[in-house]
Amino acid sequence: MEELKTSIKYPELAIQANKEEMLSNMAEFIQPRKTDVLLDIGTAMGDAAFALADHVKTIHGIDINPKYLAKAQKMATEKGIGNIEFKIGTADGLEFPDDFFDIVICRLAIHHFSEPVKALSEINRVLKPGGKFEISEVVYSDFVRSQWSIINHLKEPYDRLYTYLELVHMLNRAGFEIISIRPFNYKTYRGVTKWLNTWFGEGNNEPKERMKDAILKLDKRVLEEMRFTKDPDPEQGWVWYYNCMEILSVKKAKPA
């Protein structure tokens, strides 16, 4: 449960980067039907669930963080969306029966999972045969990962960072067949001081300085690949991009 405790602290602002852009064409990619029942794993404040609510029959949104879910619930009421049910839960032990969902989505969440293989097996279990699984995740080259892991470890020591091939292999092994992929970028959008405050609090300067220092000492190739730019005003702009992949797969039928 240790890694969950850190996920709970996940600053809410950090997950809102260019979300409009990320969510706007999700339905087009997944192609849901009005009759579909969908599970959103790591729903956080429900952004993806809200974006898909009109396209499906029912959505179940689960997350480990009760604060997010309370906000998501409130937002659903304000928006007049009545077809989403939120529950606190984790992917490695899903509280749903076998062959239940038409679609499962998991967006920028699997790096928090302590048991990703078990989680994918659970996702496979709750999906109907032929059901769709959409996963979005930051993907790293081997080299960038080796460097960025050091940075990431300072803020979220329990995260695991993936290469695209690792995700593909995990999906295949868990019984999914990939049918479509598309890359997208996830841009950090706020000043580095604010970004660090969300992780370490306002007063706690030592780890923040360590983190800044570690970022600036990154290999030039990493900074290039992540398109790192340093605004003249350090309070405003240190911008970098995470390379992400959105992968759509289907649950393979079990061999007879």
């Binding site: 009760p66 529950k87 839960g89």
Partner: peptide, 12 residues
């Protein structure tokens, strides 16, 4: 079930 949201975590 807290504030209408079930907590489906064995640890809790």
């Amino acid at each position: 079930i807290r504030d209408g949201i079930p907590t489906m975590l064995p640890d809790e």
